[in-house]
């Protein structure tokens, strides 16, 4: 009897531990990690089956901009062929939310390091995801 009780107690603790582990907060990407200037270098396409192929479509980058500049506290400047527009942005988890004056767009942050930023744009019917790759530079 005591063995059963001990076993059940251990099981209970185990369940609690698993629950806690599963609840580890996903802090996501901090806006600070994005600050600075980024230059579009190319794209890949992800079909969702781990088949990430190299894919260069200028439209993918230019849908966002040749270069991006994230500025404190919440402004992103898009430069395309030397012409600059801007909007506000915020991050939520791994999402980059671009806030226009009337409509917002949400991109997926697929990776950000000190030198590279990968942004995911939903492709046709969400079956693909285009990933635009940017590298950090000093303007």
């Amino acid at each position: 009897m005591r063995k059963i009780v001990v076993f059940l107690m251990v099981l209970g603790l185990g369940v609690a531990a698993v629950g806690l582990a599963a609840c580890k907060k996903d802090k996501g990407v901090s806006a600070n990690a994005l600050m600075g200037s980024w230059r579009y270098t190319g794209s890949v396409v992800d079909s969702g089956n781990n088949r990430v192929g190299k894919f260069v479509d200028p439209a993918v980058g230019t849908n966002i901009g040749d270069t991006l500049r994230f500025a404190v506290p919440d402004t992103i400047y898009y430069t395309f062929l030397g012409s600059t527009t801007w909007s506000n942005f915020r991050t939520q988890g791994n999402q980059l939310i671009l806030i226009g004056s009337a409509y917002s767009d949400t991109l997926a942050i697929r990776g950000v390091s000190g030198t590279q930023l990968q942004l995911g744009l939903p492709g046709w019917a969400d079956r693909y995801e285009y990933r635009a790759i940017f590298e950090k530079f000093n303007p």
Partner: peptide, 27 residues
């Protein structure tokens, strides 16, 4: 023992669900 076990499971389940507080942001 049965009560203790029941209490432990309730605590474990409550802990594992309530600690997942979702971040809700309103623009």
């Amino acid at each position: 023992l049965s009560f203790g076990l029941f209490a432990l499971i309730v605590v474990a389940l409550t802990f594992s669900t309530s600690s997942c507080k979702k971040t809700v942001t309103v623009i």
